[in-house]
């Protein structure tokens, strides 16, 4: 089926996705402000981490979906999905800096260097920054398409680091169901690329 939305329709679609992508944040704010949570800090920390992973999956799903469906216009949604991943990742990092260390950067560094699961999470977050910064059309132009693409392949490093961060976080309780699900989904999304690259 070839479905080809007009630019106007894509505009509406992007607006709808933008609004939907803010729902998790609004829900966290609402539950916190209304006082329904015994431990809002833990809830927000977990929630922002989960949504970073969801948007990582959404972002990496665009290319495979596009190839399989031939809906080339899907590419127009990718930047926003990627930026929402960065947005929730930034909130997740901020919860760490705020709730865990109350903005004591020195203490934060100690934690980053000492605890492997935090180390890999931190690296994943730092690697996201250049991708977010170079997400504008002007930056794509300045870098040139090829170089921009190479830079953005960093996501293939970030994705496994993010899974490892989650995996190690859950390791103490042998509770690997969620990290496994994310791991399988991301592996499939990445292996499809390997497969296509190999056949070229």
């Amino acid at each position: 089926m070839v479905f080809n939305p007009s630019p106007k329709q894509i505009g509406w679609l992007k607006g709808a996705i933008f609004a939907l992508a803010l729902v998790p944040l609004l829900r966290m704010v609402y539950l916190t402000v209304s006082g329904q949570l015994v431990d809002p800090l833990e809830f927000i920390t977990r929630g922002t981490g989960d949504w970073t992973l969801y948007f990582l999956c959404f972002t990496l799903a665009v290319t495979p979906l596009r190839r399989l469906s031939k809906w080339n216009w899907l590419i127009k949604l990718r930047r926003m999905l990627g930026l929402f991943m960065f947005f929730y990742g930034l909130l997740h990092f901020m919860t760490f800096l705020w709730f865990d260390h109350f903005f004591d950067v020195q203490e934060m560094w100690k934690d980053v260097l000492k605890r492997p699961f935090i180390t890999v999470g931190f690296i994943a977050f730092v690697l996201l920054i250049p991708l977010a910064v170079t997400s504008t059309n002007a930056m794509v132009k300045r870098l040139g398409g090829k170089r921009w693409q190479w830079l953005h392949r960093l996501i293939y490093v970030i994705a496994p680091l993010a899974i490892l961060h989650f995996w190690w976080m859950k390791a103490g309780k042998h509770d690997f169901i969620q990290p496994t699900i994310f791991g399988v989904i991301l592996s499939v999304l990445l292996l499809m690329r390997v497969w296509w690259a190999a056949r070229k």
Binding site: V38, D39, P40, L41, F99, F102, D111, K114, F117
Partner: peptide, 23 residues
């Protein structure tokens, strides 16, 4: 003595230590 994944030097009292206070 730290837990391998976090420090045990401080704690958050449920219902008291929240957004505005250090642990």
């Amino acid at each position: 003595v730290d837990h391998p994944r976090w420090s045990q030097a401080s704690e958050r009292r449920i219902g008291e230590d929240g957004f505005l206070s250090r642990k």
